[in-house]
Design a protein around this nucleic acid. Structure first.
Lengths: 392, 392
DNA sequence: GGCACTTAGTCAAGCCGCTAGACTAAATAC
DNA sequence: GTATTTAGTCTAGCGGCTTGACTAAGTGCC
């Protein structure tokens, strides 16, 4: 149980401050009077709260909005020059960083291609730090904090506990070094979780969904009620190791028939090779994925077969997730944002068959509209959301 | 998004009232001063809040507690004669009802053996109603409300949407009739959910676990952070239809290889028959389960083999659930409370292999200490908890 | 152009719930 | 019996919200 916390007037103030700020953030350019109506507070109170938000530079007031009857209200918007968030993503074969302002706009973004499997984590972190300093210098904004996205399981303390595709990084606690160098608070989170948040904040803005992020591994981020679902210890969403076929191939995690071994990037490429559709795997993996996209677009039957089988496997794993968690929307991201359209049919066939609520509760499958930078944007966005959630 | 709700002084009052009440409920017999210390409120405030709770008959004050230095405090306890909860459970082959008082004590409990597959839902409800009226008459307590436990998927509106083992009941909205007859508010929920809550309130009081309730079907109730996890539409926890073996036997839900078909009650009995361990299934199913328990206790190799296989299947499904939801404890209930001890070894072997966080986050498997009446007690308890949560 | 009307935002009084600190009550310790 | 200790209450004061009146700044119509 969480420790008992008494409520006082400050609690009320904080709550209402958050309420008003949320309304300003969602509906753009509303006046004090409109905010009062939307929140149920009085105009007097809203005015006082807004004054406070303006004083802390979170909100700015635009010129009055002529055209309607009566005295025009002054539109209130999130201050685009207020505290911003810095996001860093260290992935298997690239590093990116970006700055997102309070309104959610990306103000700067840089990427470096580099194979992080090769160098030491120390070297990788130095590179990431340089990139972060560059994007920070690109903009003239106060940066409130940093979030780092990593491709693996991150525990509550920010330590990367498991990263099958970046094994040298396991056990790394990256936050302290970054925090000291940048002189900012640093958070760390799983790449799929942050991509899911990006989907929530910058994508379709649905409150309940699972984002399936296919990369070399298969991860998932779950958003329920507009909040990231982390589970008891922050390890929720490990879809990649749900069993699809107990007699399937052995996985790095020690078990057999994990989804990742059947529908992960390497499995797809390998199967396409075996089917003779693409050439040997000595080519870089991104090239192989591009080849798959091209061939599928051209209607190559062998590739389509591979993708259809991947859809079936995804369906088995996702059906288990839907039955256990109960969410109404699946968003395909990462690798599957590119390849998912050819797996959709077998995926939804499988889901229809295996999801127990099928028939009276619709299950929607979408393809992510965000590009490959979902995770960095989510990382930077999570800093901004943190500022908005605690408007001290 | 939930609709914007402004906070005012009333909000604070409600919160603190709940805080004090929770402290009174958990630590028995604490004085106002002790409550003030525990909650962080002042003694003045606690006194005012307690006065209100006493006035609404939720709390009563005992005689002062001599023996220590200084003026003795008056212990405050939940009023055993305050508003009580009435629970009803309609299951496949029995109906029970019970009354639980504010302190959580069962004040009356009755069960009728009856096969609800045979009669109409109308007749079943009448029977349940009679039983409810009897337990209500047994006690001299004001009853605040009723919760009905049903063996199937119940949606947010209280309608039983799917009940594979009580097919005639599908689509039934039982609350209105009961509510009118008893002149009380009536809630409806899934039997496994309520059993999980019973485990939380009357069992080991862990804040995070999944209760696996094996009956004819296999259900699960998930408690996270001391609260029932329901998912977006209240359908979370359908463990019985997680796929264990895609090439396994066909299930009533339309898919193949669902857990229920491999480790549910009927599957276990059938397998034991095939192995020649028990006699023909024309005997009543409860008898068959009792036979299994007896044979397993006696060390019958065939039955032990069946149970070991069930443990493996459970392990596959539970590993998926743990990977996706991330909870640290599994409680085996229902059928598995009786038979689980012989499935534990294969179950935990399978979990160790398939749970991705295995190795640094322990996973605890327990056997429920509550009997078969977990669901009714949870149902009655949920009424009581509702009263305690909203002490208006 | 002027007046009525409408809507936005502010000001002053009051209420409610909490806190602080003094005060009363009721026990033990010596 | 007095000192000490702890429980519970009483009174004043403060912060935050509400109410209703007031000022500000537009449009609409003559």
């Amino acid at each position: 149980m969480s420790v008992a916390r008494p409520a006082g007037q400050q609690t009320v103030r904080r709550h209402n401050l958050g309420l008003v700020l949320e309304q300003i953030a969602t509906g753009r350019g509303r006046s004090r009077a409109q905010l009062a109506h939307a929140t149920g507070l009085t105009r007097t109170t809203v005015s006082a709260l807004v004054d406070e938000l303006v004083a802390t530079r979170l909100v700015s007031e635009l010129a009055p909005d002529r055209g309607s009857r009566g005295r025009p209200g002054s539109p209130l918007v999130l201050n685009p020059n207020g505290p911003a968030g810095l996001g860093i993503e260290i992935n298997v074969d690239y590093i990116s960083a970006c700055v997102v302002d309070l309104t959610g706009a990306v103000r700067s973004r840089r990427t470096t291609i580099t194979d992080n499997r090769l160098g030491t984590p120390r070297a990788g972190l130095r590179r990431a730090l340089r990139l972060a300093e560059q994007v920070r210098a690109d903009v003239d904004l106060p940066v409130a904090g940093v979030t780092l996205a990593l491709p693996g399981l991150v525990d509550d303390d920010g330590v990367l506990r498991r990263a099958p595709n970046l094994p040298r990084w396991e056990g790394i606690d990256a936050a302290p070094a970054l925090s000291e160098a940048l002189r900012l608070p640093v958070g760390v989170d799983n790449e799929a979780n942050l991509a899911a948040l990006a989907e929530l904040w910058f994508g379709d803005a649905l409150p309940d969904f699972m984002l399936v992020s296919g990369e070399v591994g298969v991860g998932a981020g779950v958003v329920l009620g507009g909040r990231l679902f982390r589970g008891t210890r922050g390890l929720a969403g490990e879809l990649g190791h749900v069993v699809v076929d107990p007699s399937g191939p052995r996985c790095g995690c020690g078990a057999n028939g994990c989804l990742e071994q059947i529908a992960g990037q390497e499995a797809l490429v390998r199967k396409a090779e075996l089917a003779g559709a693409i050439s040997t795997s000595t080519a870089d993996p991104n090239g192989a994925v591009a080849q798959l996209v091209a061939l599928a677009s051209a209607g190559d039957a062998r590739v389509l077969q591979v993708l259809s089988e991947a859809g079936t496997a995804l369906g088995v794993a996702l059906a288990a997730a839907v039955n256990v968690l109960d969410f109404p929307v699946i968003v395909l991201g990462g690798l599957y944002a590119q390849l998912g359209r050819w797996a959709l049919e077998s995926l939804s066939t499988e889901l229809d068959q295996r999801v127990i609520s099928h028939g009276w509760e619709p299950l929607d499958i979408r393809i992510s509209t965000l590009g490959a930078d979902a995770a960095v944007r989510g990382a930077a966005g999570s800093v901004v959301q943190g500022v908005l959630a605690l408007p001290l």
